[in-house]
Design a protein around this nucleic acid. Structure first.
Length: 866
RNA sequence: GGGAGCUUAGCUCAGUUGGUUCAGAGCAUCUGCCUUACAAGCAGAGGGUCACAGGUUCGAAUCCUGUAGCUCCCA
């Protein structure tokens, strides 16, 4: 049978994936084995796969596959998130394209469209993950808005309300005028923006002249209720308590004092606009000032804004500036760089806004659950990389109440009910609500009860994910087995949104941590370190990459360049490297299955080689255990890459490969296949498809790589006796390259005083170096190579430049003498000999002896050259 | 403004309690090879004052202090 020299992943990937599915290898049910659990960070239900998902899910799959092969009951739970604001925004824009305005629809009509959208696009991303090879238990696929998970969300809300942790309150919140909803603090992204600072005249009422006020937001002037100066500011001391006129509006406001004011900033005078700035709001509360809200929910000027009513805030700003100028009230304009908050989802400039919302009292919550912080500090929940512990600690220690209501329709509707008097109760349904109103002695008219219009923050459902995917709020059976989960693989940017809150929910509702380890991946960037994004067009389509190069190649390309905790700089050439590696393995496979075997003795050399390669494998397995423990997957993969390519292919296979026309002993062939199979198992978590294909091919399709036992390191000792022959081969090849001789040309060498290794491995030296080892070299053109106490003479068929050869030897001697000097210096330093560990001193003595003998041998060669 | 971290080869990064010839790996580069598994390959080579300046030590890429530059997080 002819097998192509080019590995074609398209021929096998789908085949194996469906076979694994069919055999149920991904499925998990509780049994007596140790559980290994991972819950997927649920992607947005209508999202599509991007490079970040690829990295994230490849890592999870590597961990899960390895655990499965280690005999654990591996359970990887997939699912999607309803992503309230993102999905609603998509549906709104889809409807707009069809000429339908959201405002023209009832809640029910809108939700119908939204569910249709979800049915159509929901879960595409999960299908895409299958192409990557993700070994999730698909029977367990969950969705944050399905019935069971929704019930858990409502139950938790009610519970927290009854515990007094959830409250309804009027606060200054972050308002997204584009999404028309509030945002949590975490959903606000601060960016540095170049703006202008306007210096405006506030005319005195009961004094001559005016106050000069610097502001970046002239469009909010109509909302001014005071101007404020620092009590110690000598410039304004005698004006305190007097009045000024609001520019253009002419309303009179008082000059007050507060120590909040920065004397250095602007003119040292602040216009106090409580409706539109958080600090002004606080000053307003302190001084009992009124609130004038000059903006509508969509960011346009409200009736209370007096001027430019209905204009967008940024349009109004320009008009205000123009008008101030025309009226001689604008003194000057300065460039001003400051940080402005933007909505994470819609990128609109966030407006501080006073509104009534639902909050979770975080201080109280943390007092009740101190483990949320202590578990991370003590590594009970371990973060990789560790440095993120600090960030977490800082956030927790400065935590603020969590605004959990959103002015959206797509999501879990808040289970609060209002009577005709505006009083409310919290309960799961209307019937219970009526009951509760009655119990509390409040008026209740069944026809006039209405449910809160708002929905809950998406993260208010995701924070329950590790519990709710096992239906842990109803039934503890699966929870007891799978929870706490083992590893969470996610992006650092959602540490506060999600990771921290899962830890909170975990301790509140199970009394336990939700996971043991959190591995934060980096952000996928392009070669110029730009974040991959749709708008930049620098993000390749992962599915195209998979179809072009194969899933294995993509996985390897992603992982090779993603050291733990670092951003990954993605470049398609890395995937080519992955593809090349697959091809290398493929060709090794072609070689081995093409060998013809016959019944003969295993040679001494073959058995040595087998011992050596097994030792190498054991060594890598041992190193990789610690790499895996530390989530250093790149290092583990690189170890395997070199093990297979350099040790197995370039040294082992080249060494035992029978000469043209010869046959190999069947014992050696069997052992080689065994070694190859072992390597395929070892690499399987990284390259699941090609490893399964080759593993099955080597073993006559009798068993599956995916559920085989992951190899463990058996021997403690790596055989080092290969090193000297290999280094000799290297030197011979080097001479060949320097003299520009063909690799095809066989050279004669003579070994004087051969040390053991050179005798034992003479066959390998001959093969890999393409040399004949003879007793006595006949020619006169000879190069000498000292090797420990032996000397190797290489006979060349070309004239040797004796001067050049002398130079080479001399420089070698000089280098070694220099080295010898430094070793001697150390050893003759009494303080070194006294203070250094004996082992270190002994090492230095050994170096001294080795170098002396090497110099001696080099000098002999130089003499021989005449 | 507050906090955390980083700086090692052209690029991306390792470097574990300070001590093997410790200055490494992969990629890239250069040279020679279509050698019977693989040119998606084989063989070989070059390349770094470990950001800078001090200090501790017998010994510093590693520990301490300062300086510069960069990144991230929070307000």
């Amino acid at each position: 049978m002819e097998i192509s020299s080019k590995y074609d992943p398209s021929l096998i990937e789908d085949k194996w994936y469906s076979e694994w599915l069919e055999k149920g290898f991904f499925r998990s049910t509780p049994d007596e084995r140790e559980a290994y659990t991972v819950v997927i960070p649920p992607p947005n239900v209508t999202g599509v796969l991007h490079m970040g998902h690829m990295l994230n899910n490849t890592i999870q799959d590597v961990l899960v596959r390895r655990a499965r092969m280690q005999g654990k009951n591996a359970c990887w739970v997939p699912g999607t998130d309803h992503a309230s604001i993102a999905t609603e925004a998509k549906v709104v824009s889809m409807l707009k394209d069809q000429g339908i305005e959201k405002s023209s629809l009832t809640r029910e009509q809108f939700l119908k469209y939204a569910w249709q959208w979800k049915e159509k696009y929901g879960g595409i991303i999960l299908e895409q993950l299958k192409k990557l090879g993700a070994s999730c238990d698909w029977d367990r696929t969950r969705f944050t808005m399905e019935d069971s998970l929704s019930e858990a969300v409502i139950e938790v809300f009610i519970d927290l309300y009854e515990k007094g942790l959830v409250y309804r309150g009027t606060r200054m919140v972050n308002w997204d005028p584009k999404g028309m909803t509030t945002l949590s603090d975490e959903e606000v992204i601060f960016k540095e923006v170049k703006d202008s600072l306007y210096y405006v005249k506030y005319q005195g009422v009961d004094f001559d002249g005016f106050l000069e006020v610097a502001t970046a937001r002239p469009e909010t002037i109509a909302g001014d209720v005071a101007v404020c100066v620092h009590p110690e500011d000598p410039r304004y001391k005698n004006l305190v308590g007097k009045k000024v006129r609001v520019p253009l509006i002419n309303r009179e406001i008082e000059i007050i004092t507060d120590t909040y004011i920065d004397i250095e900033f602007g003119t040292g005078v602040l216009k106090v606009t409580p409706a539109h700035d958080i600090h002004d709001y606080e000053i307003g509360l302190k001084h009992n000032l009124p609130v004038i809200d000059t903006l509508n929910n969509d960011g346009s000027i409200s009736n209370d804004g007096t001027l430019f009513i209905g204009d967008d805030r940024f349009v109004a700003r320009k008009k205000w500036v123009k008008s101030l100028k025309e009226n001689g009230l604008l003194i000057k304009v300065e460039d001003y760089t400051h940080n402005v908050g933007f909505s994470e989802r819609t990128d609109a400039v966030v407006e501080p806004k006073i509104s009534t919302q639902w909050f979770l009292d975080m201080k109280e919550f943390m007092d009740k659950n101190p483990e949320v912080l202590s578990s991370v500090i003590s590594d009970e929940v371990k973060f990789y990389p560790e440095k993120l512990k600090n960030t977490y600690k800082h956030w927790i220690e400065n935590i603020r109440d969590w605004n959990i209501s959103r002015q959206l329709w797509w999501g879990h509707r808040i289970p609060a009910w209002y009577n005709q008097n505006g009083e409310f109760v919290v309960s799961a349904n209307k019937e219970d609500a009526i009951q509760k109103f009655k119990e509390k002695g409040m008026d209740v008219d069944a026809d006039n009860i209405r449910q809160d219009e708002d929905v809950l923050d998406t993260w208010f459902s995701s924070w329950l994910w590790p519990i709710s995917v096992f239906d842990g709020f109803k039934d503890k059976k699966e929870l007891d087995y799978y929870y706490p989960t083992n590893d969470l693989v996610t992006a650092p940017e959602i540490m506060f949104f999600w990771v921290a809150r899962m830890i909170m929910a975990g301790y509140e509702y199970t009394g336990k941590k939700p996971f043991k380890n959190v591995y934060y991946t980096g952000i996928v960037r392009d070669k110029q370190r730009r974040k991959m994004s749709k708008s930049l067009g620098n993000s390749p389509d992962p599915l195209v990459l998979i179809s072009e190069h194969g899933a294995d190649a993509v996985r390897l390309g992603m992982l090779l360049c993603s050291p733990a905790g670092n951003d990954i700089l993605f470049d398609e050439s890395q995937i080519q490297q992955g593809r090349n590696f697959c091809n290398k393995i493929w060709n090794a496979y072609r070689l081995v299955i093409g060998w013809e075997a016959e019944n003969k003795e295993l040679t001494n050399y073959e058995s040595k080689s087998i011992n050596w390669i097994n030792g190498r494998i054991d060594n890598v397995l041992r190193e990789n255990e610690s790499h895996f423990d530390q989530f250093r997957l790149s290092s583990a993969l690189m170890n395997l890459y070199k093990l297979i390519w350099d040790d197995f292919c370039s040294v082992y296979l080249e060494g035992v490969k029978p000469a043209f026309g010869d046959k190999i002993s069947n014992q050696a062939l069997d052992l080689t296949k065994e070694i190859f199979s072992k390597l395929m198992k070892t690499i399987h978590p990284f390259l699941p498809f090609i490893s399964e294909e080759i593993f099955q091919g080597l073993n006559g399709n009798s068993e599956y790589c995916i559920i085989s036992n992951y190899p463990i390191s058996n021997s403690e000792n790596l055989t080092h006796d290969f090193e000297i022959p290999i280094s000799l081969v290297g030197e011979i090849r080097n001479i060949r390259a320097q003299k520009q001789m063909s690799p095809k040309e066989t050279l004669n060498i003579q070994i004087n005083n051969p040390i053991n290794e050179l005798i034992e491995y003479s066959e390998m030296i001959a093969k890999l170096g393409n040399v004949n080892i003879v007793d006595e070299i006949s020619g006169s053109q000879v190069i000498s190579l000292p090797l420990k106490t032996s000397e190797v003479l290489v006979e060349l068929n070309i004239e040797i430049d004796k001067d050049e050869e002398r130079k080479r030897l001399q420089s070698e001697i000089d280098y070694n003498k220099g080295f010898l000097k430094s070793v001697n210096a150390k050893l003759s330093n009494e303080r070194f000999v006294q203070n250094a560990k004996p082992k270190i001193v002994e090492r230095e003595r050994q170096k001294l002896a080795d170098t002396e003998s090497k110099i001696f041998s080099l000098e002999e060669s130089l003499k021989a050259l005449g």
